[in-house]
């Protein structure tokens, strides 16, 4: 299938958003191929910048966990990073020497907790972190703040009224934790704490064809068993006891139904193929940025990278892409 030279391969992918919550999105991506979908997925996981605690200066720590342990835990707390795209990487920042007191590249946090007289253990959580920049704070603090403001829960109804925050350490009576932390911008490639994505995955949309003729040869009981042979609920019996596709996307490409059909001696009863050019994305974020931002930022980052490739034609230099290709 040779195309004429100079013909354009350009396609115009379509996106249909099925579901969009603050930290969850499900959308269809059509008219493009796996490389595109996968690039988007990879960028979402590894290259969309967020802010996370990177430097911890511990003043007092008499808790049971050691300093590095606590620092590691602090790093993994997702911080609201809507402004991360506009921030500077600490290494590129000219305005500061990286000590944290720089408005362009870092945000300072303070934490001071001390378990006083009571016999109960004190739980130090992300709620105890005090940010110097209201835009950047632990996600559950932001959530609580929004709840207080709007009274409605933007993250769905499942959050209980009690917002406990992310546990950092438990303190016993007399123990104390006091520290200063600096959050910086970074990407998931460098450390997973900067990855805004909790889950980013896609699947090929299945194309399910039921051979009606062959299906007619089955008894109702056989049909029911055929339906049950699929571990997920893909098919159902309609009112006329006909096998119909209930939820095509529940299909996990497990081939169980096809194997069952073959076992019945009726190969070709059901034919399932993956549509090569349409993908169903599921995106969940850590809360650092909204799912919408994640997708949009990912597209922006991807475009920047592609621009870098385009620039490569001009001067043979990889430019900014070099940084992306060559790691940090």
């Amino acid at each position: 299938m040779d195309r004429p030279v100079g013909a354009s391969y350009q396609r115009f992918p379509r996106v249909r958003i099925r579901d969009l919550k603050d930290d969850y999105a499900k959308f269809e991506l059509r008219d493009t191929d796996a490389s595109m979908a996968n690039a988007l997925r990879r960028v979402m996981i590894a290259e969309v910048p967020t802010v996370a605690i990177d430097l911890v200066e511990i003043e007092v720590n008499s808790s049971v966990l050691n300093d590095e342990f606590i620092a590691h835990r602090l790093g993994l707390i997702p911080l609201t990073s809507a402004a991360a795209m506009q921030m500077r990487f600490s290494r590129d920042c000219d305005a500061c020497d990286g000590d944290g007191s720089c408005e362009y590249c870092s945000v300072e946090f303070h934490l001071a907790a001390r378990a006083t007289d009571s016999d109960q253990t004190l739980e130090v959580t992300s709620n105890d972190l005090r940010s110097m920049d209201p835009k950047v704070c632990p996600v559950d603090q932001a959530r609580a703040y929004q709840q207080a403001l709007g009274g409605t829960d933007p993250f769905g109804a499942n959050t209980s009224n009690e917002n406990r925050g992310i546990l950092i350490v438990k303190l016993r009576r007399g123990q104390e934790l006091r520290l200063r932390a600096i959050a910086r911008k970074g990407i998931g490639k460098d450390h997973a704490k900067w990855s805004p994505a909790a889950t980013v995955t896609f699947m090929y949309e299945p194309d399910i064809r039921i051979n009606e003729e062959l299906m007619e040869t089955l008894t109702v009981e056989e049909r029911r068993r055929l339906i049950e042979s699929s571990p997920t609920k893909v098919f159902k019996l309609d009112s006329a006891n006909q096998v119909v596709v209930d939820n095509a996307e529940a299909y996990t490409y497990d081939d169980e139904v096809i194997k069952h059909a073959e076992a019945l001696g009726k190969p070709g009863l059901v034919e399932i193929n993956a549509k090569e050019d349409s993908f169903i994305f599921t995106v969940e974020t850590t809360g650092a940025i909204t799912a919408y931002e994640l997708i949009m930022n990912a597209i922006t980052v991807l475009r920047q990278k592609l621009d870098a490739v385009r620039l490569q034609d001009d001067d043979g230099d990889l430019g900014e892409l070099g940084a992306h290709l060559g790691g940090p």
């Binding site: 796996a34 996968n38 699947m203 571990p231 996990t252 490409y253 497990d254």
Partner: peptide, 26 residues
Amino acid sequence: LIKHGFSYNGKDFLYSGILGQPLEAY
């Protein structure tokens, strides 16, 4: 496993993280 939507034999359908294409085996 079946009740929770997995295959009874513990095998999963995976995609290659590099190519985005399904792996040829469960």
